[in-house]
């Protein structure tokens, strides 16, 4: 038996007046499980444990959570990467968003900021009978941008997003904003930039790069935000 001590944030709005941490002992049988596997074992012990999950391979973005103080996806985070020296695992919901229950957060404001940047291609010319052509070089500009899975690990690790979630778009939304600004097929650059010029939407980014540190897909929102600033400058001077 190799027991792992797991401490999980619990809150059920129907029965709990305040959240609390609950301790579980999980037998890992010495295997280097993913954190999601540990949660599945816990759910067999206590069926009331609530968390989101879907693809279990790091592409759907359902199971973003805070593991020993750092945001990430439970399904692709191995215990060996995350368990501390005392052999303990602490699981909390993503910080800064309202908790619905246990590890499930209300992602409404996160999605609202995503919708705000108009995350779809806009092109005012009539489409050709085949595809719009795009050179491999132009297509390469989208690499590192389109792969975002909307897991919210980055935005909920960002103090600027914690303080102003209604006004600061946040790293995830801005990464997607730049994904369309950078697309050679998109013709709405001017309108997109005009919408981002205010002191909050982009400029609350202080470049501390928490987003880059936690992104489970290895993307770099800080760099994308820098590129948006460059475009704003080029557009306005």
């Amino acid at each position: 038996m190799s027991m792992l001590q797991v401490s999980v944030y619990r809150y059920n709005p129907e029965t709990d007046s305040a959240p609390y941490m609950q301790e579980f002992q999980v037998d890992t049988q010495g295997r280097d499980l993913m954190v999601l596997n540990v949660l599945e074992i816990i759910k067999q012990q206590d069926s009331s444990m609530a968390y989101r999950r879907s693809c279990r391979e790091g592409v759907c973005g359902s199971d973003g959570m805070n593991m020993n103080g750092s945001n990430g996806l439970a399904c692709v985070t191995a215990l060996s990467e995350v368990v501390d020296k005392r052999g303990k695992l602490v699981l909390r919901p993503l910080p800064g968003l309202p908790v619905v229950r246990d590890l499930v957060v209300d992602m409404g404001i996160f999605y609202k900021q995503y919708e705000r940047i108009q995350p779809y291609l806009q092109n005012d010319t009539p489409p050709p009978a085949i595809e719009r052509l795009q050179s491999p070089e132009d297509r390469e500009k989208l690499d590192g941008l389109y792969e975002c899975i909307l897991c919210a690990c980055c935005s909920t690790a960002c103090p600027s997003f914690w303080w102003n979630p209604e006004k600061f778009v946040g790293p995830a939304g801005l990464l997607q904003s730049y994904r369309f600004l950078a697309d050679s097929r998109d013709t709405a650059t001017r309108e997109r930039l005009a919408d981002l010029e205010d002191p909050f939407s982009v400029f609350r980014c202080r470049g501390i790069m928490n987003c880059v540190a936690v992104c489970p897909k290895g993307l770099n929102p800080t760099r994308a935000i820098g590129k948006i600033r460059e475009l704003l400058m080029a557009n306005a001077t």
Binding site: D198, P199, F200, S201, V202, R229, L232
Partner: peptide
Amino acid sequence: MVTNITNFGRSGL
């Protein structure tokens, strides 16, 4: 666009 009246420039840029 987030509007704000208390900063002078009203432009983040």
